[in-house]
Design a protein around this nucleic acid. Structure first.
Length: 364
DNA sequence: TCATGTCAAGGCGTC
DNA sequence: GACGCCTTGACATGA
């Protein structure tokens, strides 16, 4: 079992997601950003290795505007050796990596332009893995997409796009994740039946949306969609409900008792687990500690001292007991918990008014 | 220097 | 149809 966390290491000073505004695009800025991002990615992987974290979800912004038509700079050849070196490091230490293209990648959109941009993005992110010379166990993780009022037709479009439009190098890396609102494990299994695409299982999404499959059974159904040599062991996302937040909100920090309970459901099933938890590597280190106690992963090297993370401010109950880690303060003040606490603010600007490109009609 | 607004990209729910 | 929200790190800008 490998344990990982997504995209950002909050301990290190560097960022592997340096970017810039589209309006200020220049080839020089691409070079500068990619060089910095790859250097930071290497640092993150080294940090992870030192702490026994062998799974990592890379951020998709390694190459700013990597799939955008504006970016004609030949970064693939310019940074070929750097990509290969990172791939060599990953392979040498038996690590596993993935990408999770974000919500803009929608293969079942009725809008052909959105589908094409989605495919371009998948080709871009797949090409990063190809440049690292990683095999097809390094995956591209997406959701099934929108429902558009007719999930049957939407799923059929997904299958059609998969068979007719995706290049082979994307198909072998693509995995589909059950989501928490529209497409449960069952719908993803239907996609697997039609395409062979493996299902990346998200335990928390399954808790939010399911057809009554018990967790241990759901895990095994998802695991059976992974071809052992082509795909590797089941990748899964792990999280749990944040107390006092909306349904579906990830917790801020690993809850050890819930994690131990989940390991019971897991039983002897081998998985690689991505912790989708707010405090990133801090929870991953915590999880590794628990797994080492249970002898589910190799023991730490002699003399290993786990890192100490600064405690976060926390909410407490009337007795002063910690309930849940508080939100990490953001630059923008958090929204008040209730409307009655809201300040009499001036009417906010429309969120999308300043966008350069208007969004497509959501009613399509 | 710091705080705040905004950023390539989408879809859904509410009013 | 318009708008807010989801999520969220980092850039850009103005005070």
């Amino acid at each position: 079992m490998k344990i990982g966390y997504p995209c950002v290491n909050e301990t290190l000073e560097c960022s592997a997601a340096r970017t810039f505004r589209l309006a200020s695009y220049t080839p020089e800025r691409v070079v500068e950003a990619v060089a910095a991002n790859l250097a930071c990615l290497q640092q993150i992987l080294e940090w992870n290795l030192a702490h026994g974290l062998l799974f990592f979800r890379m951020g998709s912004g390694i190459v700013p505007f990597g799939s955008h038509e504006i970016n004609t700079f030949p970064w693939q050849t310019q940074f070929k050796s750097e990509f290969r070196a990172i791939g060599d490091f990953i392979k040498a230490h038996n690590m596993r990596v993935s990408f999770h293209p974000d919500q803009f990648v929608v293969l079942n959109s009725p809008d052909p332009g959105i589908v094409q941009r989605s495919i371009d993005e998948l080709i871009y992110q797949g090409s990063l893995l190809d440049l690292m010379e990683l095999d097809s166990t390094a995956k591209l993780q997406i959701h099934a997409g929108g429902a558009y009022g007719d999930k049957g037709s939407a799923l059929a479009r997904w299958v059609e796009t998969f068979h007719t439009m995706l290049p082979e190098e994307v198909k072998v890396r693509l995995v589909v994740e059950n989501d928490d609102r529209l497409y449960s494990l069952r719908e993803c299994l239907s996609l697997h039946d039609e395409t062979g695409v493996p299902i990346l299982f998200d335990n928390f999404h399954h808790e939010c949306l399911n057809y009554g499959e018990p967790m241990h059974e759901a895990l095994r159904l998802a695991a059976a969609t992974w071809h052992p040599t082509r795909d590797g062991v089941l990748m899964m996302d792990y999280s749990s409900q944040s107390l006092g937040e909306r349904k579906g909100k990830h917790t801020d920090s690993l809850v050890p008792e819930l994690f131990r309970g989940f390991l019971t459901d897991l039983g002897d099933l081998d998985v690689d687990m991505m912790l989708e938890i707010k405090d990133k590597e801090a929870s991953a280190v915590k999880a590794i500690g628990i797994l080492r106690e249970l002898n589910l992963v190799p023991a730490a090297p002699a003399g290993y001292e786990p890192p100490v993370f600064a405690p976060r401010p926390s909410l407490t109950d009337a007795e002063g007991n910690q309930i849940v880690a508080a939100k990490k303060p953001r630059k923008k003040p958090a929204k008040p918990a209730s409307a009655t606490e809201a300040a009499p603010a001036a009417s906010p600007k429309p969120r999308r008014a300043a966008k350069a490109t208007p969004p497509s009609d959501p009613t399509l």
